[in-house]
Amino acid sequence: MAADVLESLISRFPDLQVEEAKGHSLMLAEDGQQIALLEALKAEGFTLLVDIGMIDHWSEGREPRFDLVYILRRPTSGEAVWVKVKVGDGETPPTAIPVFHGANWPEREIYDLFGVTFAGHPNMERILMPDEWEGHPLRRDYPIVGTMPTPPLARE
């Protein structure tokens, strides 16, 4: 990332930790800062929302257990930046929809598969799993073998 862009970001977010990796820069944001940071990055030209993903560190016993990762790209150069926030179980990070409309579905997917709800999301419902599903399958403590009975083929 260009030095001047980085400097202006750090002056606005003093707690920001930045690592340069091959192919992208990684920013570790403080909890609650990520939306303002995403907005600032969007204003700096990172206007393409590539992905919002989540990683569960339960098996390592880490607290807070989740990593929420936003990947943005600068459409002119393809340069990528990651914004990473730690999220604990039961916490409700704010939705990124006001900054990127495309955050709607990936945030629903995270709710569906990890059980983390986003504050301010207009439609926080399951997206991939059936509505009546119990549990959130991509949590590391969710078993790989099915625990629910096979749904009936037709409704009575």
Binding site: T47, L48, L49, R73, P75, T76, G78, H101, G102
Partner: peptide, 24 residues
Amino acid sequence: ALAYGLTGPTLRSTGVELDLRKAQ
């Protein structure tokens, strides 16, 4: 297109010249 995270031909049809094969 950018805010919704569109990529590929759908994005390039709106005038954004982003192709990872060239850009990265």
